[in-house]
Design a protein around this nucleic acid. Structure first.
Length: 210
DNA sequence: CATATGATTCCA
DNA sequence: GGAATCATATGA
């Protein structure tokens, strides 16, 4: 299984390991517009394909919003593992969050995927805006923790087919992290209607554009 | 062992 | 505004 798929005329192939071997801040920005592909268990059903429209960078133990702040534990084993693997964790006892381990083995960097927009193979009525919603729609669970995203077997990420207009903001839901919560480490597609927390709609000509 | 809490979502 | 719901982290 090399993971190569065809979607119309576009080829979907897994991004290489080197793509993920960069600071999470770089990977987070690069992933906006990339496509997330999930092969349903069993392999009979069509792959689910979605375009990533919102991400956040988490940058290791010094970043007090990052799970890596507690050091290497059973939970953070994957986060501290090699880049290009999925780090999936349960949040609030109810939702699974999908992350991509980045930078280098032992660094504790990851990129949280916060929203995607459906491309193919997804139920049209299910929302994919929000980290808990997209995993539910794509059927990504903690069972997928530590899967290799480069092998192309179960989950992989394919390059963007066009360059999105990217906006930046502070990360969501990390107020406990003090000054780290204010870092502009959230990236989203300005033109997507599937971002989890859209910017305030500007009224008139004085509104900022993202 | 006991307790607090979270990279969220949904409902009133 | 508040509940749901539970694995993880931390302290007794």
């Amino acid at each position: 299984m090399n993971g190569v798929l065809t979607s119309g005329t576009a080829e979907l192939a897994p991004l290489p390991r080197a793509y993920f071997e960069r600071d999470a801040l770089v990977v987070a920005r690069a992933l906006v517009g990339a496509r997330l592909v999930v092969r349903p268990a069993g392999g009979a059903a069509a792959p689910r394909v979605a375009r990533i429209v919102e991400t956040e960078a988490y940058r290791g133990p010094r970043d007090l919003a990052c799970h890596a702040r507690v050091g290497l534990t059973k939970r953070t084993r994957t986060l501290y593992g090699p880049p290009g693997h999925a780090y999936v964790f349960l949040i609030y006892g109810m939702y699974d969050c999908f992350n991509v381990v980045s930078f280098a083995h032992g660094k504790g960097h990851a990129v949280l995927v916060r929203a995607v927009e459906p491309v193919s193979g997804l139920a049209a009525d299910e929302s994919t805006a929000g980290p808990g919603r997209l995993t539910r729609a794509l059927e990504i669970t903690r069972a997928d923790d530590a899967v290799d995203l480069v092998s192309g077997e179960r989950i992989f990420i394919a390059a963007r087919d066009r360059r999105p207009r990217i906006a930046v903001s502070a990360r969501v839901g990390v107020a406990y992290a003090g000054e780290w919560a204010d870092r502009p480490w959230r990236f989203y597609d300005r033109d997507s209607a599937h971002v989890s927390r859209p910017p305030r709609r500007s009224i008139g000509r004085h509104g900022e554009r993202g």
